[in-house]
Amino acid sequence: MIKSLNTFETLLSYSEENNLPIYKIMEEVESRAFDITVEEIRKKVKHNVDEMKNSIKNGLACREKSQSGLSGGDCAKLREKFKTTPALFGSLYEKISTYSLAVIEENARMGKIVACPTAGSCGIVSSVLVALSEELNLTEEDEINMLITAGAIGHIVSIKLAPAGAVGGCQAECGLASAMAAAACTCARKGTTKQIIHSATLALKNILGLTCDPVLGLVEVPCVKRNVFLATYSITASELAMAGIESKIAPDDVVDALVQTGQLMSPLLKETSQGGLAFTKSADNFKETIKF
């Protein structure tokens, strides 16, 4: 019986000793902590998977700009480009990149999305999950397992660091989302618990230090394009882990490094829009022209 899930080490040893996949362990912990049945948990997760699919559908169908005009329309551009010149990396890449743009543009337009772990990073797990499901012909049960697995990774990290740009920079939002997406991807490909954890760790490890510097404080620049980058990036982490490549720094140590990096990051680079991209001439120009 496992009561709480605080470290990757506990997750791995419990999983190996009991021969249980990550999603089953997460279900057990959640069910116990909140007095809710596994069926209820899976039903709620399925609802979120469905809403992820809806957000992709709505985002793909719309080319409107956001209220500020800073984002919107790029998804349509990318889709048109793929129609004439396919992506070098193939159809999975085309789906992940367009779906992630669809969802995050929808977010900026005040559309309905699934925050995962946050609204600013909502395109990452959504796009990877749905694109993989379509490309690999996965079942509804597989999709639910993927999202719970991704959630378990986020759960463990968030116990040490709140997933918020204001607390840990974008490494804690989009960075964490890409680690979760990598885990979902590795889960879909039937990777072992160790491979799932290492795929998430490799993703986190290579995004350490990513700051949060949204122009005008809006979740648009750089957030929109960052979702595309980090969604596709998560596949690299999964590929390495599926080959048995491991992070030389232990997973829990990488989380500690993430926390430490977040603490060391200047407050000017943590959602205050007083540094980085938000503090440039171009950003100033937007300030002049965008009025609400």
Partner: peptide, 23 residues
């Protein structure tokens, strides 16, 4: 506060920001 799986994979919400809109 007890951490829940659904703190991470939710909420389903109207964008664009959990603190400025959902909150």
């Amino acid at each position: 506060k007890q951490h829940s799986l659904f703190d991470i994979i939710s909420p389903v919400m109207i964008g664009p920001s959990s603190s400025h809109m959902a909150g």
